[in-house]
Design a protein around this nucleic acid. Sequence first.
DNA 1: TTGCCCATCAACCCTTCGGTTGATTCGAGA
DNA 2: TCTCGAATCAACCGAAGGGTTGATGGGCAA
Lengths: 208, 208
Amino acid sequence: MTAPVQPIKVLLVDDHPVVRTGLRALLEGFEGVEVVGEAADGTEALTKVHDGIDVVVMDIEMPGLDGITTTERITAQNGPPVLILTTYDTQSDVLAAVDAGAKGYLLKDAAPEKLRRAILDTAAGKPTLSSEVAALLMNRMQQPRLSLSTREVELLAQLATGATNKQLAKSLFISEATVKTHLVHIYQKLGVTNRTAAINMAREQRLI
Amino acid sequence: MTAPVQPIKVLLVDDHPVVRTGLRALLEGFEGVEVVGEAADGTEALTKVHDGIDVVVMDIEMPGLDGITTTERITAQNGPPVLILTTYDTQSDVLAAVDAGAKGYLLKDAAPEKLRRAILDTAAGKPTLSSEVAALLMNRMQQPRLSLSTREVELLAQLATGATNKQLAKSLFISEATVKTHLVHIYQKLGVTNRTAAINMAREQRLI
DNA sequence: TTGCCCATCAACCCTTCGGTTGATTCGAGA
DNA sequence: TCTCGAATCAACCGAAGGGTTGATGGGCAA
């Protein structure tokens, strides 16, 4: 690899000024990377994503339009690749990001060098996951018996809000009977006997 | 106020390199403020807190020794004033920080100018709270009726592990009837209708 | 002293949850 | 093609949770 003729143009999306400043300071120290824009939320990001951006570095938690939804919109309109840079590596966050079309998923406590590597890879269209995230996915793949189905994870997420079976049925457009069936499977897979314990276990295992 | 002869020496404590870099970049743009050290967790912070630090800017969520505990240790040994800079303004976080002896509490999405003001105030020993945090405290003071009793919090903590009423009764040395009574009171105070939602609400408000 | 809150308990009743059995449809893969 | 898992649903029943009413005793403050 020779020195790039044109620097990689990056759009930063994060609701915290401190983080945006930090990212900008870090990235401007990297050769071949140029920060060409900042956005404080998803809506602002969508208005700035057009002109020649090579990589979008995106937080998930934001007021208004969140990072997952924003990523969906960007990929839907064939926008630049998105690198998710967030605090949490729960399974539901990671899966949602991948589903939304994110090219990379990195944790905020990553070392600067890893961040640089991830941005270059993302710009090159190469999928990049931090080691923790990769381990999480590998774990999911290697233990298919113990892993929850996507539908079960969806249900679990709703469950954690305190919804009753009736509410779960309504929000997932299925019958209460099906909700119960899913719950039984979830209990079996998590090794618990009731919904409260299931939520607790799911939190421990970072499923939600 | 004239220009300070000596700049205010700041120690940054945050587990995210990105945030530390951002804070440093921001603070170095402020006149009269100098970053003299960084720490990635509470333990490291304690070793660096001695020599002539004027203000400690501290995150709460950190691996190992968290920001609240670290603040307690620092204030216990008459260390420099601590300004908490964090993402969340839940009731228990704020209360815990104040209890631990923090002089200020600011959110990470605060504008840079507010951050500068807060650091100067903290160095001068003047307590500073962001407006959201202040409103939260006011709210708590004005509505003492909504706070849970100690017994109720105890029960709530057990509840969150997934215990049934029978188990709760056993572990708290009371009858199931009493457990139910406590639960009803908890539900009323938290504005929910079942145990799962109660746990969720309690987590949101960082009561447990 | 009186009133109030907290913590404790009982009895009753209804709703919801949890577990079981059995079934259908559909898509992926051997 | 056949199999298997995922997802869907129904019906049933016992266990657990949730709501109500009513009661007792201790501590604290007006």
